[in-house]
Amino acid sequence: MRIETSYKKVSGGKITGQLGYSHRGTSHWGSAFTQSAGTTKTSTWTSYDSGFRCAPTVGILKVNGQGTFQTPVASC
């Protein structure tokens, strides 16, 4: 199972943050990055858990100084 979280920055100044996902109450984070307007950042993970496919999963973005934001829940 492939998990992908993306963030497209349309406007505003540079941010420093991390992309991740939350699954079964546990957050998984990618490496920190800096991003400017007009770019898209994507992080990808692979899960070999056979039960992963139907468990609710949320994409998350943590921005330094601004907090954490999430996507709607993805599930079967």
Rank of each mutant, 00 (worst) to 15 (best):
C54A: 13
F33T: 01
S11A: 12
C76Q: 07
S43H: 12
A55C: 07
Q66F: 08
L19G: 07
G30E: 12
F52T: 05
Q18P: 11
Q18F: 06
G20F: 13
S27R: 15
G12M: 03
A55M: 11
Y7T: 08
S11N: 12
S27K: 15
Y7Q: 01
A37D: 03
G59E: 03
G17Y: 03
S43P: 13
V58P: 12
V10K: 08
F69C: 02
G67L: 04
G59L: 01
V58L: 04
S43A: 14
V10N: 07
R24H: 06
Y48V: 06
T57K: 03
G67M: 02
A55T: 14
T46A: 13
E4L: 07
K9C: 07
S75Q: 09
R53Q: 12
C54L: 09
P72K: 00
I15W: 01
Y48L: 04
G38M: 02
D49P: 01
N64R: 10
K9R: 11
Y7F: 07
Y21W: 09
K8A: 12
S50F: 09
C76K: 04
T68E: 04
K62V: 06
S50T: 12
H28R: 08
C54S: 14
Y21H: 05
Q18V: 12
S43M: 06
Q70F: 04
I15Y: 00
T42Y: 10
Y7V: 15
G17Q: 01
L19T: 14
R2H: 10
N64V: 15
Q35T: 09
P56M: 00
T40N: 08
V58W: 13
V58R: 12
F69T: 02
G25Q: 08
W29A: 02
G67S: 05
G38I: 08
G30P: 15
R53T: 13
T71S: 11
A37H: 00
K62I: 10
A32H: 01
A37G: 05
T68I: 15
S47M: 03
I15F: 04
G59P: 06
I15Q: 01
F69H: 02
A37C: 02
S27D: 12
G65Q: 07
S47H: 04
G20A: 10
V10F: 04
R53G: 14
C54H: 14
P72M: 00
C76E: 07
M1E: 09
G20I: 10
S47Y: 00
I60Q: 10
G30W: 03
W29C: 05
Q70Y: 05
A32T: 15
T71Y: 05
T46V: 10
T42G: 06
K9V: 05
G59V: 02
